[in-house]
């Protein structure tokens, strides 16, 4: 097998190009690769080898970050299949999903207003549950049904959810002040 900086992230870690991956194998492969290519292993070598090392270590980090996160992994897998997830252009969402989002955002604003960290933790729990459900749907649509259009829709939903999770984290931060 020929290894080059252009190969896809799955084959870089010798993983099948699926949404469902064994994350412990991913972590092991990543660490094994960094142990060979990290710049710390090259400081006393020639300039050419040092430069290659930075390129490889950067690539390994990018690949690991992409595959470790379910949202990034799904998006990346779709891009390998030539599917655009239309996250900027396609803003149509099922009405019940939007209603749920609005409820959560209202509850988030209330929790911030009343400095209620318990309420915040409750919303966080619900959002995490929704995230898990969406990830299961992604596994079904990407790995079993190969329904990339449906999967793109779930990616768009998951992006909403991750944004909300970030806002919850920064709300915890604010209340900590």
């Amino acid at each position: 097998m020929k290894f080059d900086l252009q190969q896809d992230f799955f084959s870089l870690f010798d993983l099948p190009a699926n949404f469902q991956i064994d994350t412990s194998v991913l972590e092991q492969s990543y660490r094994a690769l960094q142990a060979q290519v990290h710049p710390d292993k090259f400081t006393h070598l020639s300039e050419a080898e040092r430069r290659l090392s930075v390129q490889w270590a950067t690539r390994a980090n990018e690949a690991y970050q992409t595959l470790r996160s379910p949202l990034n992994r799904a998006r990346y897998l779709l891009s390998l299949h030539g599917v655009d997830t239309q996250e900027e252009s396609n803003t149509a969402m099922p009405i019940d999903f939007l209603m749920q989002q609005m409820d959560w955002r209202e509850a988030l604003a209330d929790a911030k207003q009343t400095k209620n960290t318990d309420a915040l933790a409750e919303i966080e729990q619900q959002v995490q549950n929704m995230k898990r459900v969406l990830e299961q749907e992604l596994a079904r649509d990407l790995d079993n049904r190969h329904d990339f259009v449906a999967a793109s829709g779930i990616v768009r939903k998951l992006k909403f959810i991750e944004k909300l999770a970030e806002e919850i984290a920064s709300a915890f931060d604010e209340l900590d002040n």
């Binding site: 080059d4 010798d14 092991q28 290519v37 050419a48 290659l52």
Partner: peptide
Amino acid sequence: ALNQVTTEFAQRRMDKSVTRALAGHKLSD
């Protein structure tokens, strides 16, 4: 000049290292 002529060699050595990293990993699997 020496850095220049060893660039391609460095590339091949890196490929070999990467191959070894993944081969080692498969072995442990």
